[in-house]
Design a protein around this nucleic acid. Structure first.
Lengths: 300, 300
DNA sequence: TAACTGTGTTTGATTTTTCCGAACAATTAT
DNA sequence: ATAATTGTTCGGAAAAATCAAACACAGTTA
């Protein structure tokens, strides 16, 4: 590794070129003339070149000295630009690139509600979205492929910090002709006697729904497990069974579905929506800001 | 005056980004991991920004860290460019090592005349000499084995720049008892009727002499082709034929040779002596200085 | 002429910074 | 469990940067 001139030396050189005077250059740099003198001398030695001719009465930059001074000026400006970028980034939270993972049972229903406002609040944020299941998102989070993830909690994970955003209540969903339809609410006992349809394995909603029913996790023995919420709803409308629907998704899924019955649970049950990021990241403040910005008004 | 990051810190950052490993980055920079660690930490503090997430098992650059690393890389390159410029300039007064190729029909006759003065003018120049024929010298020049070459021109070559030094006039050389001896000059017609002796193939002097006689290049059909100028002269003295001798060499070759007759050509003919170097080299100024320094006073 | 003034440089001491080595903490591999 | 790897912390030593003061030199002034 080669021995480079120091930025300080280059700054001294610039001051010397500007003032044409060691004393003035020194005071401009808040050092004594002796410091500046020896600094310039050392710079000349490391470069192997005379930068300024000086007799006791005047300082005259060499042609080469002038050339090098100009390059030094550009160099210092670039260094200051780095400082500027860092400062701007630290005082402008949520700016620059960020990759956000989202699970399929949140993304399509939450993001349309909050992204427009997010874009307005943080115009310098370039958000890239990745949709995948919780397990994969956590893997990619730890690999650094994504910076944060919108997940449903609780979920077992190490080395990950989370910020709670809001509770997403479950609603009972059934065909309008189902025996439990037209009730104001549905109890767990009533639910237990129904054919409960679930999402396929890998979707955390499956576990969370079972947990809401106070049922133990079960292997995918169902003959019919939906691979997406819209599919699941179609199965319910076809009266193949009932299901639990997160309120977050219920609105858009139920719109236009004539034969779908929805009602709350008694007692209420919910999953928690939150933002997750690597514990090692020191951008906790930023992620809390992001979590707040991704929380829809109606539930906050 | 703002507190800038040091170039060393930026180099450490680059190494960290390249290796993704504090230990490897440290050894790449010839420092201990502790130094690198605290250096990066300090850099992060002066910038007020986290540059790399590090968990005891892996290092992961922040988006901002990557951005800053790239800018740092450009910065370091600019700093190195300054070094380069200075080094190139400090070489201007021909200092340091330089390897010079010379052809056999120039070296022994020109160099003794000019090297003493060269040594005085450029005491810091360490000149290494390589004697070989033009074709080989050009090959070695392009390979970078030599920095410049003293050649006789014209010569067909690509990617090579040349500086003209002086004209080297041909003299007619014959045995003192030759029918053309005692003339004030010799014409081309007279020359054409003589037995012209030449150097062996590969010596450019062979081609240049033929060209001076306005004769086409000829394959080496001669029964007797000399492999050096002293040998050639001996053949002339032995009255085996006549030849054309460059003035540069004539003096030292003729001294002490009783039976040798020399006279100019009518019209005069000459070869050009010049210095050649790689076109890609940016040391044009230096080579022109060298060419001037290698030109003897009597012909300049 | 001789002292004076302004200037860059040298010098020696002092302060500051840098750097290493060892111990440490945390994690993974065996 | 034990060992190996890796980044970090800490204290002291080495290196450097810096200062203040003395110095050297050239014009200028008295």
């Amino acid at each position: 590794m080669l021995h480079l001139p120091s930025l300080k030396q280059l700054q001294y050189l610039m001051a010397l070129e500007e003032t044409g005077h060691f004393g003035k250059a020194a005071s401009q740099c808040n050092v004594t003339p002796s410091t500046l003198s020896s600094s310039i001398k050392e710079l000349e030695e490391t470069l192997g070149v005379q930068l300024a001719e000086r007799n006791n009465r005047s300082v005259m930059m060499t042609a080469l000295g002038l050339e090098i001074t100009n390059r030094a000026r550009a160099l210092i400006q670039d260094a200051e630009a780095i400082m500027e970028i860092a400062k701007a980034a630290s005082r402008t939270p949520l700016s620059g690139k960020m990759t956000l993972g989202v699970i399929p049972t949140i993304g399509p229903y939450l993001l349309p509600k909050v992204l427009p406002a997010l874009k307005t609040t943080y115009p310098d944020l370039q958000l890239y979205l990745i949709e995948d299941q919780t397990e994969q998102l956590i893997t990619r989070l730890k690999r650094g492929e994504i910076d944060a993830a919108l997940l449903a909690l609780p979920y077992e994970m190490e080395g990950v910090s989370t910020a709670f955003m809001f509770n997403d209540y479950f609603q009972f969903a059934a065909n309008a002709n189902h025996s439990l339809a037209r009730q104001k609410s549905v109890t767990l006992e009533e639910l237990a006697e129904s054919d409960l349809l679930l999402l396929a394995e890998g979707h955390c909603l499956r576990e969370h729904a079972l947990e809401a029913c106070q049922l133990p996790p079960r292997a995918q023995a169902d003959n019919f497990a939906a691979t997406s919420l819209p599919t699941l709803i179609q199965m319910v409308i076809a009266n193949m069974g009932v299901t639990l629907l997160p309120t977050l998704a219920a609105g858009s899924l139920a719109s236009g579905a004539e034969n779908l019955f929805l009602c709350p649970l008694d007692p209420p049950a919910y999953r928690e929506i939150g933002l997750a990021w690597r514990q090692a990241s020191h951008r906790t403040d930023e992620f809390h800001l992001l979590a707040a910005a991704l929380t829809p008004n109606e539930v906050s």
